[in-house]
């Protein structure tokens, strides 16, 4: 194994390139969601806005799958962080 690469990939959760590469190798991961779930990379406040393309490239390098064929993070609401006090405005039954 080559030298450790300690560049930070996910700034929110402070996950390094090495942690991501180790997880991909150890568990044969091929999707961004799997990497997220096992390393926490992409789980932070920005929900992968910064690290998603980086994680895709690392998966591509480790697995020989093309970047365009790698499943990105699944997208879930909210689009950006929202104070949970929002729920006390308006009626409970409102959408």
């Amino acid at each position: 194994m080559g030298k450790k690469v300690n560049k930070i990939i996910c700034r929110c959760e402070e996950i390094s390139e090495q942690e991501i590469r180790d997880a991909i190798r150890e568990f044969n991961l091929e999707t961004c969601d799997e990497v997220k779930r096992l390393t926490r990379g992409g789980m932070g406040l920005c929900q992968g806005r910064t690290c998603e393309p980086l994680i895709e490239r690392i998966i591509a390098e480790e697995t020989n799958i093309k970047v365009s064929e790698i499943l990105p993070f699944s997208k879930r609401p909210p689009a950006r962080p929202i104070k949970i006090g929002f729920s006390t405005e308006g009626e409970v039954g409102e959408g």
Partner: peptide, 29 residues
């Protein structure tokens, strides 16, 4: 996820823990 249910969940959570009110929700699934 549906906004109705998330709103309901979160509103009850604030009743239980008022300090959560100022905390950000970052994701729902």
């Amino acid at each position: 996820v549906t906004m109705q249910i998330i709103r309901c969940l979160v509103r009850r959570a604030i009743e239980f823990m008022p300090k959560l009110k100022g905390v950000n929700c970052i994701r729902a699934w």
